[in-house]
Amino acid sequence: MVLENDVEGIAKLADIHIQKEELGEFTSQFNHILEYFDILDTVSDGEEGKADLVNVLREDVVTPSLTQEAACANAHETEDGHIRAPRVM
């Protein structure tokens, strides 16, 4: 059972602002879904899949890629071929 407080905390972790008036509905849907997920408690101990996987490696060779101009084309604020982001601190 999670509370509105918990959902608010998760939303903060996920960087999603949830309106106060929507918290109640989110919380009740959350609990409804988590209750369904409880069926996973019946999974007997077993192993996670380890399919026949091999690492795929290659030499780090420079190949043609996007131009700086194309990479910046969708950004709204650029400066000297770089993308401006909000301040972190």
């Binding site: 903060k12 960087d15 999603i16 602002h17 969708n74 950004a75 709204h76 604020e77 993308i83 401006r84 982001a85 909000p86 301040r87 972190v88 601190m89």
Partner: peptide, 21 residues
């Protein structure tokens, strides 16, 4: 930041990011 509707770069990252999403 890199695509889609823009964010306000003058606000702090988490505040802006949270409101945007």
């Amino acid at each position: 930041v890199r695509f889609g509707p823009s964010v306000e770069t003058k606000r702090s990252w988490h505040d802006e990011f949270r409101d945007h999403r």
